[in-house]
Structure formats: structure tokens, C-alpha cells
Design a protein around this nucleic acid. Structure first.
Length: 425
DNA sequence: TCTGGGGTCCTTTTCCTT
DNA sequence: TCTGAAGGAAAAGGACCC
């Protein structure tokens, strides 16, 4: 516990408002107020637009030139939608085809992660200049420890929150919402109270009035499954959750999760703001344009598999990691997923080894059913010391030799057997 | 008619060793 | 030699988050 001379912990959660859409509107201000959805696209939109409007700056390209949802073909989900698009019932995680029926005229922008990352770095740099203890929680969210920052205690943190908000807006033109509370759990909830461009302060005494009336789902860590199970026991609000015996929650939800639920309902959370962390795993996966079959689409599948391994190897090299647990993930046409992995005796980074071990994993799954997704993963990571070069080996050639050469000699039924059992991978 | 990609963490199951 | 218990590590699955 803190001694009385220490200031009380003040933790902020900062959440950028409609981050992706706001970044896009900085680039294409002519779309302001229109229904816009972001997602799906694979091609740089700028390039497509420029084919017909090479002479115009981006912000002068006419609205009519932008692609619309009804012309989209393929799979994929909406990553985010502007408020104008939400009016039509379109929302995050919705399938594109369904969204196209609800709002065919919505403008469709492809996701441009590089651009969002650039803005992410900019707003985070603004924050750490003011308050250095910041925890990265993804591209558009951070926690900040206000406790020891000059001014961090004034008005419960409101003064510092206002300064950060203004500094971010001045540097990027983007707005954000901030919640300040005694811990991360409450700060996260507080940042949602007053969106967009709001500040909310939660003090320890506010638990009953501000937190307990909220739905359990508002707790970061209670998802759809837990919500459903809680509801089945008649628990809908955080206050109702807090009223349950800790022992009952433990026996109903398990030792770890039950105890955590109880703590969360009572606003208890001692987690520190963590400024540095190492990744646990790195992966690449892709959903195919259409479902693929191991026999009929073997060439296509093999090429995708090789490419995933190469991309993963490049990611590992760029980020400076090796890993010794290599695995695959696949999703069948009925959306059921399976994973297989294998730990080898030394950490590796090269595409050829990844492909060889991942190929072994593929032999252990049912490949007679149609597939919609394939992924490759590396875990048990260790950082590569700077300046130590790693051997690299070709990967595609190795695959071609193993898979394509025998297909000339063997009978088609033999190949089919092999493929179904996965051994040709 | 559908349902992305990249992560973390936890629980349960399985396998191996003693 | 067989069998079972115990414990740990690895594997598999699933919930959750952005």
C-alpha cells in the first residue's frame, strides 16, 4: 500500500476518436459527413484514383470517383464505419456483402495501416513528451501513469488530460477521449463516458454511482460469452456482479476468472502501466478468396503456404526475433479452426525451416475438407542480438522440388492419398 | 449469406518421465 | 515387468482485445 505521503495513483486511458476514419478524412476531407466504410480493399486507393485524376491533389478528387460498397466483390468485413454509415445499420465486423445490401452507396476505403501507424507514432510521441510512463495498447489506445507527472493530480487529472488532448490535436488534427481513474480498469471504462473529445474523471468514491449501473460487458475482459453466462445467472450490471459472493463466482467461473470478475466489479486493479514488453508470438494468416481444397487446389495452396512462411520470416528478421515453436492454423469452410504446433530444439528465423516444420504440422490435420484460411505462427521467441547475422536459405525452390517432381511419376490416386493425408506438404 | 488479421492469456488435454 | 500416481511441458482450443 502507498504511504500517506505518496500521491494517490492516477491512471489515464486515452482512446483516439474514430481513429481510422478520422485519419482518412484528413486525407480526403471531401468525404466528411458521407457514409464511409473502411475495410476489405487490397489495393492502394490513391493509385486507383490517380489513374483518372492524375492532375488533382487528393482532397480535390470528386466524390463520384470513389469506389462504393455495392461494387465490392469478395470476402471480408468492415473494419470501421463513419457515423453516417452506421445510420444504415452498418458496423464494425459486419460482412461486406451484408453491409452492401444495407448501404450500397457507402464509399469504401481500403485499410491503410501504414498511414494509421504513422499517425499513431505521432500522437504517442506527443504524449511521452508530456508524460513519459505510457503503455502501448495498440494503434489508437494507450494507458498513461499521471501519478508523478507535474500537474497530474490537479482536478483529479483533468488538467493534464486537457493539455494532452490539446497537444495531440495541434500536432495531428485528431481528437481523443480520456478517462482518468485510480487504475487501468476504471480508466478504460471512464474513457468511454464522454466520447468524442471528452474527459471523464473517476474517483474511488464514484464506484457505486458511475460504475455499478453499467452492463457487465463494459468491463474490459468480459466478452460475449461471459456476458451470456452472467445473464443466465441473472447478472446484468456490474453492481449485480459486485453483489455476488466471491466464492460463488469462483465456483461458477473458475478460480482465476471468478476472482478476477469479483475484483473488477469492486473496481480493484493493481496492474502497473507497462512501458516495455517483448512479443510472445508472431504470425501471418490469410483468408482465401474462395474455399480451397488440398487436392484440387494444391498448387495455389502450396504457393500461399510458401508466401506466408516468407512473409513471417521477413517479419521475424525485421523485428529481430527467432522462435522455436512453429505452428499452423487453418479454418475449414464451416468456420471451425484447428491449430497444430511443434517445438524444435533451437530457435530459427528462416523461411525454409519455418516451412518445413509448419509442413510437418499440416500432416497432422484433416485435409479432406475445404479450407477458408491458412496461417503460420512462431512462438517461444528470443531476441536476435544486434550484429549477429543469420543464415538464410531459399524456400520456394525447396518446395517445388518436393511437391512438383513426384507428381509426374505417381498415379493420381496415390497423389490424392498423399495430399489428403497432408504428406505432400 | 455470412463471419479479417494480429495478438495475449487462460484452461484443458495429452504426453512424457519418474 | 506391469501398473498407476504425480508433475511438468507441450499442445490444443477458446475467449477476448484492438
Amino acid at each position: 500500500m502507498l504511504s500517506p505521503v505518496n500521491p494517490p495513483r492516477r491512471i489515464a486511458h486515452l482512446d483516439m476518436d474514430a481513429f481510422y476514419a478520422s485519419v482518412e478524412l484528413l486525407r480526403y476531407p471531401q468525404l466528411k459527413g458521407l457514409p464511409v466504410v473502411i475495410g476489405g480493399g487490397r489495393r492502394r486507393l490513391d493509385d486507383a484514383l490517380r489513374e483518372h485524376h492524375a492532375d488533382l491533389p487528393l482532397h480535390e478528387i470528386p466524390v463520384a470517383a470513389f469506389p462504393v460498397l455495392k461494387d465490392y466483390t469478395g470476402r471480408g468485413v468492415i473494419t470501421t464505419a463513419t457515423y453516417a454509415a452506421r445510420q444504415f445499420g452498418v458496423g464494425s465486423a459486419m460482412g461486406m456483402m451484408k453491409a452492401a445490401r444495407l448501404c450500397p452507396q457507402a464509399i469504401l476505403l481500403p485499410v491503410d495501416f501504414d498511414e494509421y501507424r504513422r499517425y499513431s507514432r505521432r500522437f504517442k510521441a506527443v504524449i511521452t513528451d508530456i508524460a513519459p510512463v505510457m503503455e502501448d495498447r495498440g494503434v489508437d489506445e494507450v494507458y498513461i501513469d499521471f501519478t508523478a507527472v507535474p500537474g497530474g493530480q490537479r482536478e483529479g487529472g483533468r488538467v493534464l488530460a486537457r493539455l494532452i488532448q490539446k497537444s495531440i490535436f495541434d500536432a495531428t488534427g485528431l481528437t481523443c477521449s480520456v478517462g482518468v481513474a485510480p487504475n487501468k480498469l476504471l480508466a478504460k471504462m471512464a474513457s468511454e463516458f464522454n466520447k468524442p473529445n471528452g474527459i471523464s474523471i473517476v474517483q474511488p468514491d464514484d464506484l457505486q454511482t458511475l460504475i455499478w449501473p453499467l452492463a457487465c460487458r463494459k468491463i474490459n475482459g468480459v466478452g460475449p460469452k461471459a456476458e451470456e453466462k452472467l445473464a443466465a445467472h441473472g447478472i446484468r450490471t456490474i453492481g449485480e456482479l459486485a453483489a455476488r459472493e466471491r466464492d460463488w463466482l469462483v465456483s461458477t467461473f473458475g478460480r482465476s476468472y471468478g476472482a478476477w470478475l469479483h475484483d473488477a466489479a469492486w473496481g480493484r486493479d493493481e496492474r502497473a502501466v507497462v512501458t516495455e514488453s517483448e512479443p510472445v508470438s508472431i504470425s501471418r494468416e490469410t483468408t482465401f478468396e474462395r474455399d480451397l481444397h488440398a487436392v484440387r487446389d494444391k498448387a495455389e495452396l502450396g504457393a500461399i503456404f510458401t508466401r506466408l512462411c516468407e512473409q513471417l520470416a521477413a517479419d521475424l528478421a525485421r523485428k529481430g526475433y527467432r522462435g522455436k515453436t512453429i505452428g499452423i492454423k487453418l479454418r475449414y469452410d464451416n468456420f471451425q479452426s484447428v491449430t497444430r504446433d511443434q517445438t524444435i530444439d533451437h530457435a530459427v528465423q528462416d523461411a525454409a525451416t519455418l516451412r518445413r516444420v509448419a509442413g510437418q504440422c499440416l500432416k497432422r490435420v484433416d485435409l479432406s475438407r475445404r479450407l477458408r484460411l491458412l496461417g503460420v505462427r512462431v512462438g517461444s521467441l528470443t531476441p536476435v542480438e544486434a550484429g549477429v547475422p543469420l543464415p538464410s536459405a531459399p524456400v520456394a525452390a525447396d518446395f517445388e522440388r518436393k511437391v512438383q517432381a513426384p507428381s509426374v511419376k505417381r498415379s493420381s490416386s496415390a497423389i490424392k492419398k498423399q495430399l489428403v493425408s497432408g504428406s505432400l506438404f
